[in-house]
């Protein structure tokens, strides 16, 4: 069989990394960072945790190119959803035409 079996050691490591990430994000939430840094820190930790789950628990790191394309397409369409919506909402009021 050509299927890759992820060793237990890696699963345990990822599990511990995820728990540490959770503790970090709770600790960081109580620190008053300047500006929007709190949100940026929280989202960076969440994206990192999600990446570990996708790559190792969901085996994407060992999967075919086709699976990589599907995963990338999900992120691509999410980017369209957010980018196009915010190009409207965040730019309202930039022009001073009354309506």
């Amino acid at each position: 069989m050509s299927e890759h079996i992820v060793p237990v050691r890696i699963y345990v490591t990822i599990f511990l990394v995820l728990l540490v990430g959770t503790a970090l994000t709770v600790a960081a939430a109580f620190v008053d960072f300047p500006g929007r840094l709190n949100t940026i820190v929280a989202m960076t930790i969440a994206v990192t945790k999600a990446t570990f789950v996708v790559l190792y628990f969901m085996h994407v790191r060992y999967s075919s190119r086709l699976v990589w394309v599907i995963v990338a397409s999900a992120l691509f369409w999410m980017a369209i959803l957010f980018a196009l919506t915010f190009s409207d909402y965040l730019t309202r009021g930039w022009l001073s035409v009354g309506y």
């Binding site: 969440a46 789950v53 628990f57």
Partner: peptide
């Protein structure tokens, strides 16, 4: 795992945003 990932984002976005 997918459902777990959704929660990984929901937790900081819903529970942690105003703590500081």
């Amino acid at each position: 795992h997918f459902v777990d990932i959704i929660w990984i984002f929901l937790f900081p976005l819903l529970y942690l945003l105003g703590r500081h």
